[in-house]
Amino acid sequence: MEKKTIKIIIIIAAIVILTLNGAIIEKKREGNVYSLPSLPKPIAKEYVLITSAGQSTDAYIVNDIANKLMIHNYFMPQAKENNLESVNTLVFVVGYSELGEKLHGTSYEDEKKRIVKLLEKSVEENLVVITIYIGGKQQLEENTKGLLSLIIPNTDYLIGTKEANGDGFLSDQAKNNKISFTLINGVNDLSEPFASAFR
């Protein structure tokens, strides 16, 4: 057999193994499903204000889920404290996106200031705060962790992904702040715990 043919076979085999391996790891993850603990009783009331913390597109997914669940909501990725009037629940969808912030003409520091003001107002108004993080491990970098650390102490219910909790950051934060906490496998498992906060 020619050397060239052997090389091609090796390359194809490598691609197939990598692909199958990826699929197996995915399956393993799916197999190790965390039993979705829903909140035993609702803690939040409508109307809901869904906002983004970090301006990633994840907020749009949560907004879509809320719409599908028929939860009355206002979707304002850059909501300010004055938008909290006539709102009973504040939902933060955390995910830092450099491009997202650029698109909205804001910076990380400005975003933090906005969040702090929203949290202050929510405490003032005694609003329920739900924090959602649907990103992965790689996305849980310094800036996202900074945003989460800022929001979680004032949060009533935290929903995060199992992948992101690889280093225990989310569970530790929830434990330290004594808040209800749900880990989900992926974005498609979000509906149930999210709905349980309202119904």
Binding site: S56, T57, D58, I61, S97, E98, L99, G100, I134, G135, G136, Q138, Q139, V187
Partner: peptide
Amino acid sequence: DIPYSIKT
């Protein structure tokens, strides 16, 4: 950022 958003 973008590829992950697409995948999510």
